[in-house]
């Protein structure tokens, strides 16, 4: 079916960026990590900052992110990426510094580092992949696991009385004066990928302004942890994750967005009970 007349260098409109290495990613088929990596790499490429970017990878599925980005990279201890990135940026203020962390890393073991880096207004970009589960260790409950959601450590579903509430750390961070840009995106459809990429671009551009921390949550699926096909997992995410983790900007240029009411931030706490 190939129309080989079209396949010519001058007609190329899209191919993998050179800021990604040729290493084959270890992620499961359909995992959002690959897409998130790619759009970050594209932003680095488009901004022409490959020689000035330093990334920090977490512990979790994306621990090996440094094998895929062709930029200088550090691998941090579990949860400590914001502290690591703080020092990189303070000592190398001309560099673009980003962390790439999952929900367990950023919102459980590393909550203190996340909160304080945000509160100090560190001039860094944090990319937060929220898939509601510990993927690498085999599908245990994460701070962001939904109420009622089954995991390896909540085999009968997450219970509020036992496990507490899903932590909406992104909303929490938006209330801190140190954050300059806070947004929640996803990468499961072409439109969402474009929006997420624009958000990451903004989060990197913000580092030139030196006005505080830019935080991009990417609500993502973990099809193997959720025990679904990739396409099913994306649909399940739309139906169950998005009501609890609504997409869109929360804080832009240091100001809460108009649609972000106190109710949206605090009172409308996610209590949707999912049954999976």
């Amino acid at each position: 079916m190939a129309n080989l007349d079209i396949v010519k260098p001058e007609n190329l409109v899209y191919t993998k960026t050179k800021v990604l290495t040729d290493n084959v990613m270890h992620y499961c088929p359909g995992c959002g990590h690959g897409t998130a990596h790619r759009i970050i790499a594209e932003v680095i490429d488009e901004m022409g900052i490959q020689d000035k970017t330093i990334g920090v990878s977490p512990v979790g599925c994306s621990v090996l992110a440094y094998n895929y980005f062709d930029v200088d990279f550090q691998e941090a201890a579990h949860g400590r990426a914001p502290a690591v990135a703080t020092a990189i940026k303070r000592l190398n203020p001309d560099c673009f510094v980003f962390t790439y962390q999952g929900d367990g890393d950023l919102a459980a073991i590393g909550t203190a580092e996340t909160l304080h880096a945000a509160n100090r207004g560190e001039n860094i970009t944090m990319v937060f992949i929220n898939n509601g589960i510990y993927g690498m260790t085999g599908g245990q409950m994460a701070p962001t696991t939904l109420v009622g959601m089954k995991s390896a450590t909540t085999p009968y579903g997450r219970r509020v009385d036992l496990n507490g509430y899903p932590l909406r750390i992104t909303e929490l961070l938006a209330t801190l004066p140190g954050t300059y840009y806070v947004t929640r995106q996803s990468v499961h459809t072409p439109g969402n990928v474009r929006k997420a990429k624009a958000a990451i671009r903004k989060a990197f551009e913000n580092q030139k302004l030196n006005k505080g921390l830019s935080f991009v949550e990417i609500c993502s699926s973990c099809n193997s942890g959720w025990k679904m096909t990739p396409v099913q997992a994306n649909k399940w995410m739309e139906e169950n994750m998005f009501p609890n983790y609504p997409l869109g900007d929360i804080k832009v240029d240091g100001k809460l967005c108009e649609n972000i009411t106190a109710e949206r931030l605090v009172l409308d706490h996610p209590l949707t009970v999912v049954n999976k």
Binding site: Q74, A83, A87, I88
Partner: peptide
């Protein structure tokens, strides 16, 4: 650069990040 961290966990990891550059 001198910075007071939020904990010793953070300060040693700041050492990690800065020194690794």
């Amino acid at each position: 650069v001198v910075l007071q961290a939020e904990s010793e966990l953070a300060s040693i990891n700041m050492v990690y990040g800065g020194a690794a550059t």
